[in-house]
């Protein structure tokens, strides 16, 4: 069975080799400072107590006043998993974070997808362009403030769940 690193233990272990990089921790999550993401990920991959050699998933969530980039890591030799998070783009301006493609190549398409749909820039990505939507598409659709592009065609405005909430 996979052991899941608890947030507190992981934060302590990260602080041991990269002091000052952890913002906070709770449950199974560790919030890192965005500027230290490369150092920490490099350490988590190489150091013998972690060996997180597989990046399961990379995604981002829009929390309106900031974005949160979420990394799910897996260690094949230790059969362990961990969750890293990082808050970027406070005030919705210039959301950007260092790319982890030099560390895990599996981040390649996932970072492009986050850039395409959420609009978070990944500095140092080797091929930083849209992946799903076409060049010239206005905006990033997974952002919460995104207004559906063609109101003429989609007759129901976004937020159909709100109307459901009222009906219930």
């Amino acid at each position: 069975m996979t052991t899941v690193w608890s947030g507190g233990a992981l934060a302590e272990a990260i602080e041991a080799f990269a002091p000052g990089s952890v913002e906070s921790s709770a449950g199974s999550d560790v919030w890192l400072k965005p500027e230290s993401i490369s150092t920490v990920c490099e350490g988590l991959k190489i150091r013998s107590e972690f060996k997180f050699d597989l990046l399961s998933s990379l995604t981002a969530v829009d929390y309106i006043d900031h974005f949160e980039v979420v990394y799910h890591l897996t260690s094949l030799p230790m059969n362990a998993s961990a969750v890293l998070k990082s808050r970027v783009g406070h005030g919705r301006t210039e959301a950007s974070i260092a790319s982890v493609v030099p560390i895990w190549r599996g981040a390649d398409y996932q970072e492009r997808e986050v850039w395409d749909l959420m609009g978070i820039r990944f500095d140092g990505h080797p091929n930083h362009k849209r992946i799903m939507l076409w060049e010239g598409y206005p905006g990033h659709p997974l952002r919460k403030d995104y207004v559906t592009y063609d109101q003429s065609i989609a007759s129901t405005a976004p937020g159909a769940a709100d109307s459901l909430k009222g009906a219930e």
Partner: peptide
């Protein structure tokens, strides 16, 4: 090429 394609889609 991508930009040209995007223009035609738009």
């Amino acid at each position: 090429l991508d930009r040209t394609e995007g223009e035609s889609v738009n």
